[in-house]
Amino acid sequence: MNTSRKNNRPNFRGAPTSPGRHQPKRKAVSSLDPKLLVKKAKPTVSLTGPSLGKKFSELPLDSKLQLNIQKKGYTNLTPIQEQAVPVLLDGKDMLAISRTGSGKTAAFLIPLIMRLLKKPLASSVLIVAPTRELALQIGEEFKGLTLGMNFRWATFIGGTNLQSDLNHLSQKPQVLIGTPGRLLDLARQKVLHLKHVNTLVLDEFDRMLDMGFIQDVKRLVEMIGPREQTLLFSATLDPTQQKLISGLLNNPVEIHVDPGTSANEHIDQETIFVPEGEDKFMVLEKLLRNPELNKVILFAETKRLADRLAKKLVQGGITAGQIHGDKSQNFRNRVLGEFKSGTIRVLVATDVAARGIDVADVSHVINYQMPMTMDAYIHRIGRTGRAGKTGKAITFIN
């Protein structure tokens, strides 16, 4: 394989950047048509039905990896996994577009683990994710898939203790997982050296652009230099990003599977109109009295509103917690753990976590306010109806 990137350097000119700090604030108004937020879910396919993809046991994988895949309960490959895994096992660059919750993480981790098994001393992997929660989720998935393999790996995210990062780096991890800002900070302090990285994965690439991380990603790529393999995984693809993507990839294989330009068909979507003068929180509270809403993610537009909603829910006897950018990472980890275990029933979140929450069996997603864009809406409600199950999404309309 030709690993040189000298004539294929990233070209980031014209890429979207963060809005200027001194621009005047405008009152945010949703651009969504409420009619688009109402849709009945299609029947789900039986998890044991003949229409599912091939089995993991049919893939040429290491026996320990096969055992760990079985322990995680994975039997059949999802469509993105069925298309991506064989290509990545061949070591090719890839641009993969597939909606959230489609199994993208395992699609790139399984081939990378096979590379590490074959060349443990010659492989170094960097996986970049836009949010702390997503980086931690990738780390947990890697941990589960590599039990008993003695790989060295670490996660580097904002809001955590720097000394802990230094301790992890002293172990010379083979796999680095992190958010752009923290990785760049460590590299600038010359405690993280990226020249030895030969495999780069940019997960939720579109979200990284949306969040204004493009300059950080550019600097990280320049620090890495030539690579053997580069993977871009994303839920959506903006045609204006094609030049940027071409600068990152070398003769890539492109895979488009069920892209995230529309909501998951297995999600029941409805709206609740709140007349002027009616107390919307009382409407929410009454809705949550229904025991069918047993594991709920409630999205709010601002951090302040998320805090207020969580506090009022707890005061009303409904177990709830909140995560957003102003909360420490330890706080966010604890609340997310309580939500996963069922200790709290309602998780109030802002968009910062919309793509990083991977919790099984979320029964409902509720938008307390209409999301600003369809893209935000799709990724929010994608927290339910995962792994072939039916979910429910409710959006309040003022």
Rank of each mutant, 00 (worst) to 15 (best):
K104I: 04
V45R: 13
G321H: 07
P120S: 10
R9M: 09
A107Q: 06
A135T: 01
S30A: 00
E265S: 12
P173Q: 06
K118C: 02
N264Q: 08
G225A: 07
D185V: 01
L249S: 06
K392D: 01
K312V: 04
Q83D: 12
D307Y: 05
P16Q: 13
T240Q: 14
L47T: 09
G225E: 08
P252D: 04
L117H: 08
P130R: 07
L126C: 13
T17D: 10
G91L: 12
I381Y: 01
F56E: 06
S31D: 06
V348C: 04
I297G: 00
H168W: 02
S57T: 12
N8E: 10
Q189R: 15
D165K: 10
L166W: 04
R289V: 00
D165V: 09
V274I: 15
I344P: 06
L176R: 05
N333Q: 14
N7L: 13
D62N: 15
G317P: 07
L52Y: 05
S4D: 14
N264M: 04
L136Y: 03
A306H: 00
Q23C: 04
K218C: 04
M374S: 06
D210H: 12
D90W: 06
G158P: 08
P16I: 08
G325F: 01
V201H: 06
P252C: 11
R26N: 11
L184V: 01
I97G: 02
A129N: 05
P50F: 09
S46L: 11
